[in-house]
Every structure is written in C-alpha cells, then in structure tokens.
C-alpha cells in the first residue's frame, strides 16, 4: 500500500506580502514620477512637461515594439501549434 501523497509545503512568505510589496512599489513609482513632473512644471511650465512626455513615451514605445515583435512572433507560433494540436485531437 502506497502512502498518501504529502500536501505541498506551505510557502514561507504568505502571498499577501508580495501583493503589498508590489502595491507599495507601484505607489512609490507613481509618486516619484508625479513629483518629478511637478518639479519640471515649476521649472519649465507645461511646455517642458509635454517635451519630456513625448520623448519618454516614444522611447518606451520603441523598447516595447522590439519586445512585442520578437515575443509576439513566438506567441503566434505557439498559438498555431496549439490550435493544430486541438484540431488533430478533435477537441
């Protein structure tokens, strides 16, 4: 007779700790960006804000584009393979 499988070990750190840390991090980033924008507004007015926004978002979008072009191609391959497998198995 085989013994009953042991239950998976309880994680040392509860999940809520990571959620809390992520939330704090997100709030911190948003606060820092907002503070930076306020300082920038004081120095340069709205014109400076929009210059930084334009350059910043375009830069981030360029990085995102590279990631999506590469990662997306792999995902398309995965999607077609999965659909093909489902079709073969008659699912």
């Amino acid at each position: 007779m085989t013994p009953a499988p042991l239950p998976p070990p309880k994680p040392v750190t509860p999940a809520w700790v990571f959620i809390l840390l992520k939330t704090v991090l997100a709030v911190l980033v948003v606060t820092l960006v907002t503070a930076g924008m306020i300082l920038l507004h004081r120095e340069t007015g709205w014109e400076g804000i929009w210059k930084v926004t334009l350059i910043g978002t375009c830069g981030l979008f360029a990085i995102l584009s590279v990631l999506v072009i590469v990662g997306g191609a792999l995902d398309v391959r995965k999607l077609l393979r999965r659909l093909h497998e489902r079709e073969s198995s008659g699912d």
């Binding site: 995902d75 995965k78 999965r82 093909h84 079709e87």
Partner: peptide
C-alpha cells in the same frame, strides 16, 4: 480551418500569449 467552433472563432481558443496579447 481552425475557425470551426465558436470559442475559436470568437476568442482564438483562449490561447493567446502575453506578447501577442499586447500586439
């Protein structure tokens, strides 16, 4: 040929990965 059932036709078989999802 993959668009034969409603889940595939409407939701691509719920099999879209993150990067393809972003795209």
């Amino acid at each position: 040929r993959y668009a034969g059932n409603m889940t595939n036709f409407v939701s691509a078989g719920r099999a879209v990965g993150t990067w393809l999802g972003v795209a």
